[in-house]
Design a protein around this nucleic acid. Sequence first.
RNA 1: GGAGACUUCGCCUAGUCUGGUCUAUGGCGCCGCACUGCUAAUGCGGUUGGGGUCUUAAAGCCCCUCCCGGGUUCGAAUCCCGGAGUCUCCGCCA
Length: 427
Amino acid sequence: MIDSNLLLDQPDAVVAALARKGVSSETVLSARQALIQRRSILSEVEGLRAEMNRRSKQVGKLISSGDPSAEQERLALADLKSRIAEKEAELREAEKNSRSHLLMLPNLPSPEAPEGLDESCNVILRVEGPPADRFNPADYRPHWEIAAALGIYDPERAAKLSGSGFSLLYGDGARLIRALIQFGLDLNRDTYREVLVPHMVRSEVFEGTGHLPKFAEDAYNTTLDDLWLVPTGEVPLTGMHRGELFEADELPKRYMAYSVCFRREAGSAGKDTRGLQRLHEFHKVELVRICTPETVQDEFDGLLADAEKPLQLLELPYRVVDLAAGDLTFSSSRIFDLEVYSPGVDRWLEVSSVGNFTDFQPRRSNIRYRVGSGQTRAPYYLNGSALATPRMWAAVIEHGQRQDGTVELPSALVPYMGGKKVLEPEM
RNA sequence: GGAGACUUCGCCUAGUCUGGUCUAUGGCGCCGCACUGCUAAUGCGGUUGGGGUCUUAAAGCCCCUCCCGGGUUCGAAUCCCGGAGUCUCCGCCA
């Protein structure tokens, strides 16, 4: 969540910043009002408690010295106690109210994020790899056709098992997913510590990353145990340090995790749904960096480079898109999307979102680091995908397709496919 | 699933039976100072964290914080109830 002191002290700055994300000034100011109210009740409660503590100690002394006025004072305190209880109930209400307001406010966009409320204002920074205009879409078939023809993709049986939005792969198709994951992990092994995370996490963890309370319908949960299925490895990688206090020299920390990702994709029905472009369940390698504000630019640049590496090594055309303030996700302040060009569908598909989340998530998750003596601050969190299947899978298949329906694999992947260079029809 | 033990200020730990003097003990780590040519060692001092208030700032003062949430009491680390987690044993199980 955003810094409540910033909201209290500089409301105009917060209103202006969040307006760029399309948040109304009323929403921001009513959150501020709730904070002010909470603080004033808190002062009252603290005053009453101070009185209680002071007099209560005296009572103890009076009682032990056998003073006859002790009984009278004791009864007076019982009365004071009930007054405190009433005020405390008010305080709890005010705290709940201010917190729920605050939790609904998104992170402040970076001043450098392009202006604009939707994706039409995104800025294409660079286009890399083989020039996309070299591809004539008429010459390319979509990956689902190629894969089905090769006998490695079976949407009917996937639907029989789980409904639409799930995939079932055979043989080299299945192996190619694992090859990509292994490739993505190996590329980053020197920089990031690998973590194999749980795929189900508690509500608090979800709230810490900003997925709750606002986006409950985007995720799957288990009603019997109140656990949520992770939509990305970012969630457990960020939540694992919940409530912890780092020493400054422990930072930066860099983690990577392969994980299955579960997304309900509520509201995106019918959008990019053909083939494996948008699934409820997929596999991904995620990178997370935790650092101080002082080094965030270097860490961000490093993360971006790491996310681009697989696209380069797989010889895929891609572009880097600087998201407009209004197109940024809830918890982020700056995002560079990496989009791979898919000639079979003639579209640029997002394969990584490299984001700076500043101190938004650690503040929600109570993660801090020590600054000098007696001071703590929230560290900055960055994350991005190192390798997201199935879109990279689809891109590899579409780019490698040949006239005869076979698929030539990029040489970087060949070792991960047991030396196999070409996918040929199976069964 | 059953039985038991446990959870204390970054880490380890005393305190809980017997409620108030716990403003929480000691060690490690960390910070400062002294000593030393430097390092190490040693000595002395400091060090829970969160919030409020005041202030240019600091200091001060106040509240909260002994896993979390309730309760009893004038007063709870300490007593009671509920929950979470860790460990041990038993049962079941890949």
